[in-house]
Simulated scan of single mutants.
Amino acid sequence: MKLVYVFDAYCGWSYGFSPTLDEITRRRPGLPVEVVSGGLFTGARRVPIREFGYVQGSNAKIAEMTGVEFGAAYERLIADGSFVMDSEAAARGMAALREDAPERAAELAGALQEAFYADGLSLSDAATYRKVAEAAGLDGDAVARAFEDPASAAAARRDFRRSAEFGVQGFPTLLAVDDAGRATVLAVGHAGADDVERRLVALGAV
């Protein structure tokens, strides 16, 4: 069995789920976690953040329910409403980080969201991936180059297809996938680590 975490780096609820995922991986260090980018803000949804009038209210609810904090630098980044959340760029960056340290994908996904929601860094900027990689002890220049490489764009497209194949309707979605490839939903949106743990036990994970 493995976990498949389908998220979007620009999704506030995915950011709010990070503490739960951290706790699950701490409790079950031997359980592999595959991270898949979902592609929330692509195509016609890749527009200035002012087009999503619910952002501030949604963030307040996420903070209240999950305890995550939205940093002052993030608030400054989105203050005038012109910032564009581009999930294809974020997925390319996640692919670049994941390629360098696949066994740390869950940790790196959380770090990527911290870079945006706490530090106010654009996930369309190669320098962001350099910084995240270096903070994680990885080769920042190599990751920044990989972000710009067409291979990462291809990996992002594969992630979007994989999310669709799992039938994911919302982010984040945490799945348990058995050795035969059968997927069971463990969480969608918000869930605590104890809730996820109970569902894993019910599936026979020990």
Rank of each mutant, 00 (worst) to 15 (best):
A155Q: 09
E134G: 09
G12N: 07
G57V: 07
L121A: 15
A63E: 15
R76Y: 01
L112H: 04
A109L: 08
R50A: 15
Y117T: 07
A106L: 09
G57T: 04
R130C: 05
G12Q: 08
V188D: 00
D179Q: 06
F171R: 05
A180R: 08
T42K: 05
K61Y: 12
R26H: 10
G192L: 09
S14V: 06
R145C: 00
A91D: 13
G16W: 10
A91E: 09
S82I: 05
V36A: 05
S82E: 15
E165S: 09
F52W: 14
A101D: 09
E51P: 00
R28E: 00
E148T: 13
Y129L: 11
I24V: 15
L3P: 03
A151L: 08
R26F: 01
A89G: 06
A44C: 01
A109E: 04
A126Q: 06
A72V: 08
G140Q: 09
R92I: 10
Q169F: 06
V206Q: 10
G53W: 10
T173Y: 01
D159Q: 10
R158Q: 12
V143R: 07
A205R: 06
M94N: 10
E114I: 12
H190N: 13
E69F: 06
E148S: 12
E148W: 01
D179V: 04
S124E: 14
W13C: 00
S58F: 10
L31D: 00
R157K: 13
M65V: 15
P19D: 09
A153P: 03
M94D: 08
L175C: 02
E69W: 05
A105N: 05
R76C: 02
G53L: 10
L108G: 03
G93I: 11
R104N: 09
T66E: 04
A164D: 14
I24R: 01
G204M: 06
L200R: 04
D141T: 12
P48C: 12
G204W: 04
R157V: 07
D125F: 05
V177I: 03
A202G: 04
R161N: 06
V201R: 15
A60R: 13
M85A: 14
A9I: 07
A96D: 11
F83Y: 15
A95G: 14
L112K: 03
G38L: 11
L138M: 12
V68I: 12
E75Y: 00
K2F: 00
K61D: 15
L31P: 01
P102G: 05
A44M: 06
V47N: 08
V36W: 02
G93C: 11
E69H: 12
A142C: 04
D178F: 01
A142S: 09
Y5S: 03
P19E: 11
A146R: 15
V132H: 06
V196H: 03
T20V: 07
M94L: 15
K2A: 02
A60L: 14
A95S: 15
Y74H: 12
E134M: 08
R199F: 05
